[in-house]
C-alpha cells in the first residue's frame, strides 16, 4: 500500500498557486474541507477558479476565500445565503457560472472517469443551453456538457485509512466522492484516520486511488446552516 498520510495542513495543500482551479466538496456547510479552506484563506494566492455546489456563508467555508478576494470565478449551482458573494457578483468583481446541480455532479464525475463530455436534458431551452451543442435522443432534446477537472480537489470524509480509502457519513457525502475523482491532487480531510486493514473493503465509498494526500483534520466545527427541529 502507498502511504498517503500527511501530518500538517501546510503539507496537505503544498503546491497550490494563484490561477489554479480547485474543487471543494460539500453541500452548504455539510461535508466541507474546513481545515484546507482555512489554510488556503491564509495564503497569498488569488485568481482562483472554484468549483463548489455552494459558496459558503459570509464568515465560514468558501466565504473566507471570497472575503479576501481570492476567487476570480465560481462554478456552482446555488449561491444564496452569502451577502459578500452577491455583492461581488452584482458588481462584476466575481465571475459566476451557474449550472444545474445534477450537471455539476456529472461534470465532476465525468472528469474523473475519463469521459470528456455528455448529453443531458437538464437546462434545455434555458439560458444554460446557450452556445451548447444540442441533440435529440429518444425524441427529447439534450445539451452537451463538458467534464470538469481540477488542479486540486479538497474533500472531507468521516473515516479514512493511510492508503487514502474513504468512508463518508450521512449527507456529508454529496459531491465529495465525485470531486475526489476529478482532482489531479486530491486532499482528503478525515475525522478519523486509521491504519490500513482497519476499514472493511466492502464498506469503502471512495477508493484510495483517487486520493493523493490524507490528513486527520484538527478541528471540525461542522456548523449547521439551517437548524430545524420539532418539539
Amino acid at each position: 500500500m502507498i502511504n498517503k498520510e500527511v501530518k500538517t495542513i501546510k503539507e496537505a495543500i503544498k503546491g497550490v498557486e494563484s490561477g489554479m482551479t480547485f474543487m471543494f466538496g460539500g453541500f452548504g456547510l455539510c461535508g466541507i474541507a474546513e481545515n484546507s479552506i482555512l489554510e488556503l484563506s491564509k495564503l497569498n494566492i488569488n485568481n482562483l477558479t472554484c468549483v463548489s455546489n455552494n459558496a459558503g456563508i459570509d464568515d465560514f467555508g468558501l466565504g473566507l476565500l471570497l472575503k479576501r478576494r481570492q476567487i476570480k470565478k465560481m462554478i456552482s449551482s446555488y449561491v444564496g445565503e452569502n451577502e459578500e458573494f452577491e455583492r461581488q457578483m452584482l458588481s462584476g468583481e466575481l465571475e459566476v457560472e451557474l449550472i444545474p446541480q445534477g450537471t455539476l455532479a456529472e461534470r465532476c464525475r465525468a472528469g474523473g472517469a475519463g469521459i470528456p463530455a455528455f448529453y443531458t436534458p437538464a437546462g434545455h431551452g434555458t439560458e444554460v443551453a446557450i452556445g451548447k451543442e444540442e441533440r435529440i435522443f429518444n425524441n427529447k432534446p439534450h445539451i452537451l456538457e463538458n467534464a470538469l477537472v481540477a488542479d486540486f480537489s479538497f474533500v472531507k470524509a468521516w473515516k479514512g485509512d493511510t492508503a487514502g480509502n474513504l468512508i463518508f457519513k450521512g449527507t456529508a457525502r454529496n459531491f465529495n466522492p465525485l470531486m475526489a475523482m476529478a482532482g489531479k491532487i486530491t486532499v482528503a480531510e478525515v475525522e478519523e484516520l486509521v491504519p490500513i486493514g482497519e476499514l472493511d473493503p466492502n464498506q469503502i465509498h471512495t477508493p484510495g486511488i483517487f486520493v493523493q494526500r490524507i490528513i486527520k483534520g484538527n478541528n471540525f466545527e461542522k456548523r449547521i446552516e439551517n437548524l430545524t427541529t420539532i418539539n
Partner: peptide
C-alpha cells in the same frame, strides 16, 4: 425534522435543514 438536541450536522436536506 429531528427533536431538539438530536440534530446531526451530517444529516441535512437540500434546503440545508437538519
Amino acid at each position: 425534522f429531528p427533536k431538539k438536541g438530536q440534530e446531526d450536522p451530517d444529516l441535512i436536506n437540500a434546503g440545508k435543514q437538519t
